[in-house]
Design a protein around this nucleic acid. Structure first.
Length: 212
DNA sequence: CAATAGATCATCT
DNA sequence: GATGATCTATTGC
């Protein structure tokens, strides 16, 4: 119901121009929230890089000093400095010698906190995303993981510190807000603070990185 | 299905 | 020198 599919050969749910028309940019104030609040607010938003995009369906909050699972808990380093800076910037880090993960910086400047984007529902530019990932399976499996979505949208450390309310890499809001329930549960792949319920998911969505 | 091995390197000890 | 906010392929039931 979201839009008319213009090109029968495309899997895209929305053409790029339609996506721009159906969404609006975020502003700097949108990101200046408590980290957990921002993690919930980002669900259902659009992550766009150039002409490829998806809807965010899974996030995790990473807090400050007390959260030993968070990179920022060890303090400021060249890698983590952006987490302590102004909100709405990209914290991109390299992991396991192979993958990049994208976070959105939260909290007022001077306070640490960021939100890991863990899964996207692909919307636009799906053919290009498939090529980047060399993926021929179901579309729900194209960007349903933090390392998969950065590869699908070609996001890397070049975007470290980029602002996300404008520019090639940006987060946008639907003019007609989608309706869904949110589940909270333990974060994935960590060894500290394993019971803190800081993973947020769009309930029942097929593109989650793991099923409930 | 579930469990596990292997890939591969920036970061911090 | 060990580890990690991961993913894929493969093995085994």
């Amino acid at each position: 119901m979201n839009a008319v599919r213009k090109n029968k050969d495309s899997e895209d749910r929305l053409a790029y121009s339609e996506l721009l028309a159906a969404t609006a940019p975020t502003d700097a104030a949108f990101f200046q929230s408590a980290t957990e609040t921002l993690a919930r607010k980002l669900l259902g938003c659009v992550l766009l890089h150039h002409r490829t995009a998806g809807t965010i369906v899974e996030t995790e909050a990473y807090l400050g000093t007390a959260d030993l699972a968070a990179h920022a808990s060890r303090g400021r380093t060249p890698r983590t400095q952006v987490i302590f800076g102004p909100p709405g910037r990209a914290y991109v880090y390299f992991i396991y010698g192979m993958y990049e993960c994208l976070n959105v910086v939260a909290e007022p400047e001077g306070q640490a906190g960021c939100v890991l984007i863990r899964a996207l529902d692909p919307l636009t530019g799906i053919a290009e995303m498939r090529q980047r990932r060399r993926w021929t399976g179901r579309v729900e499996g194209l960007a349903n993981g933090p390392g998969k979505l950065t590869q699908a949208l070609a996001i890397g450390r070049e975007q470290y510190g980029a602002r996300l309310d404008r520019g090639a890499l940006s987060i946008r809001l639907w003019k007609e807000t989608p309706q869904f329930e949110v589940d909270a549960g333990p974060r994935i792949g960590i060894r500290e603070c394993v019971d803190w319920p800081l993973r947020f998911t769009w309930r029942g969505h097929p593109a989650l990185s793991r099923r409930a």
